[in-house]
C-alpha cells in the first residue's frame, strides 16, 4: 500500500491493487488511513530521504492531498506546542492560552517579565562571582561545562547593552542556553557569529526544559570565545528541511 501511495509499485501489482481498491471496501478504507499516516510520517520526519522525495514528487500531486498535508502540519504544530506547554506545569494549559502567547504585544510583555525575573535571579547569583564589576547573565560552572543563559535580543538590543559573559577558562565547554518564548519546532539550528563571521553551526538541536523556561542548548568550546561581541542566530527547522529565523541572541565576552 505504501508503494502504491509513493508511486513505486510495479505495473502488474499496481493494476491488481487498483482493482481491489474498486471492489474491496476494506482495501479502500485501509488506503484512506494509510494516506493520513503517511502524511503524519512526512510531517514528523519519519520518512527516509528517498521516501520524502517520492512523497513530494508523486503523493502530493493532487490539491486534495496538498490540503491534507497542510492539515497534518497544522495539527502537528499545535500538538507539539501543547506538549511543550504542558511540560511547564502540572495543570493542562487551556486552549486559548496559546492564542495569548501568539499575540505580539502580549508575547513581548511575557518575554519582558521572564527577562526581568531572569535578570533578578542573575543579580543575586553574580554577587558571589569572581568578576563583580560587570553585570552578567546567569552563569553556572561545573568542572568542565560553563552554562550561560541568553535571552533573545532582536527587539533592538544594542551591543553596549548586550548580556555580558565572563571569559571562560580554556579547555571547558560553554553551553549557551537560548531562551524561547514559545516553541513550534521539533528541531532547531544555531549559528555563532563574531563580527558577521560564522564560527560554528549546530542543527538538530532540541528543546530542554529548565524549570518553567524552555531553552535550546547550543554548546561551543571555550577556545572559540575571546573578549568581544558575539551573536547567536537561532532558527527553527521546517519539515521541508528549510530554516525559519526565530531570533538573535547577542552577548559580550568580558575578561
Amino acid at each position: 500500500m505504501r508503494a502504491f501511495l509513493l508511486g513505486t509499485l510495479d505495473r502488474d501489482h499496481k493494476a491488481q491493487f487498483e482493482e481491489r481498491i474498486l471492489t474491496e471496501s476494506s482495501v479502500y478504507e485501509e488506503l484512506l488511513i494509510d494516506e493520513e499516516e503517511l502524511i503524519d510520517q512526512y510531517v514528523t520526519g519519519g520518512l527516509s530521504a528517498l521516501e520524502r522525495e517520492q512523497f513530494e514528487s508523486h503523493f502530493l500531486i493532487t490539491a486534495e492531498r496538498q490540503k491534507n498535508l497542510r492539515f497534518g502540519k497544522l495539527l502537528y504544530k499545535y500538538a507539539i506546542s501543547q506538549v511543550d506547554l504542558t511540560v511547564r506545569g502540572p495543570s493542562p494549559i487551556p486552549v486559548r492560552s496559546f492564542s495569548f502567547l501568539r499575540a505580539p504585544v502580549r508575547r513581548w510583555a511575557s518575554l519582558g517579565l521572564v527577562a526581568a525575573l531572569v535578570g533578578a535571579a542573575g543579580i543575586i547569583i553574580i554577587r558571589g562571582f569572581v568578576n563583580r564589576r560587570e553585570a552578567a547573565s546567569v552563569v553556572q560552572e561545573t568542572t568542565s561545562v560553563v552554562t550561560v543563559t541568553l535571552q533573545p535580543g532582536s527587539s533592538g538590543t544594542q551591543a553596549s547593552t548586550a548580556q555580558r559573559v565572563n571569559l571562560p577558562p580554556r579547555g571547558v565547554e560553554v553551553k549557551l542556553e537560548l531562551e524561547l518564548t514559545h516553541s513550534t519546532f521539533r528541531n532547531y539550528k544555531s549559528e555563532l557569529f563574531r563580527e558577521n563571521k560564522s564560527l560554528k553551526i549546530s542543527d538538530e538541536l532540541t528543546i530542554e526544559s529548565k524549570g518553567e523556561q524552555r531553552v535550546v542548548p547550543f554548546t561551543v568550546t571555550g577556545e572559540m570565545l575571546s573578549p568581544g561581541d558575539y551573536q547567536v542566530k537561532l532558527s527553527g527547522v521546517l519539515d521541508s528541511g528549510a530554516d525559519e529565523f526565530i531570533d538573535n541572541y547577542p552577548f559580550r565576552v568580558i575578561e
Binding site: 501511495l5 508511486g7 499496481k14 481498491i21 474498486l22 500531486i61
Partner: peptide, 19 residues
C-alpha cells in the same frame, strides 16, 4: 458514491492532477 471515490483514488495513485 463508492465507485466514484475509489476511482478518484485510483487516478490519484496514477499521478493525475485532476482525479
Amino acid at each position: 458514491e463508492q465507485i466514484r471515490s475509489r476511482l478518484i483514488k485510483i487516478f490519484t495513485g496514477r499521478g493525475s492532477i485532476d482525479p
